[in-house]
Design a protein around this nucleic acid. Structure first.
Lengths: 116, 116
DNA sequence: ATAACATATTCAAGAATATGAATGTGTTAT
DNA sequence: ATAACACATTCATATTCTTGAATATGTTAT
């Protein structure tokens, strides 16, 4: 029933979160945006060292989140699926909004003790 | 401009991802769902040991993702903001969909070398 | 061929995380 | 007051992640 009923999906989802659960990585993904970017671009944009950025790009590539393409001595990186930005933005919105949801009163535990 | 223009939001978002970047934690959050659940419910539902679940609940509580309420000897846990489920579902959908986005050809790096 | 450049990769040590085991705390029943 | 129960917390270790430093690779210009 659930979108995540399959354990494999849960695993994959948790791996996705793991990969993007890093401020530097989020910055990089947002900087790449829907287009593409070379390392020097990210370097000047974010102020991180070259090797540091490359390391993160490597992790993102390994996680199949980005793809790379060489053009001369530049290598351009882009999101495999720009929809990832939506996931990030939604999470950011979740984080930001100060309005807490109304507490949902409900209860009926189906564990052995409760139903027996 | 960007939703994440503030570094604080990026930090918070990365912390959110960090907290939910665990299969066990995702399972727990989905099991709690929009309602509330006691530990024994989660225990019988997910098949994990009690202490293990409590440890994860502790982490989720520390991250302000869930809230707890005691009723007799049971303690019910619920999402502070059920919208979190949407974030998770969207990520799961992202993970699942096999359709890769069309490559976006684009380039114009604004780093020192490129614009100078 | 050599040098400069853009970027990737490897390595290692410290930091953070995960999780099993043991134990503590608050509540209800007797 | 004691026991049983539902759950939380602490502790310790194994594993994973992070990140600075060093180095390697592929490309272009000379």
């Amino acid at each position: 029933m659930n979108v995540l009923s399959q354990n494999t999906t849960i695993e994959e989802t948790s791996e996705l979160f793991q990969t993007i659960a890093s401020a530097a990585r989020l910055e990089i993904l947002l900087a790449i945006g829907a287009g593409e970017a070379c390392v020097c671009h990210l370097e000047s944009m974010l102020g991180y060292r070259q090797a540091y950025i490359s390391q993160h790009l490597m992790a993102l590539r390994k996680a199949k989140i980005i793809e790379s393409r060489r053009e001369g001595r530049y290598i351009y990186h882009r999101l495999r699926k720009p929809e990832l930005l939506d996931v990030i933005r939604q999470a950011a919105a979740f984080t930001d909004s100060k309005t807490l949801a109304a507490p949902t009163p409900a209860k009926d535990c189906c564990c052995p003790k409760c139903i027996s």
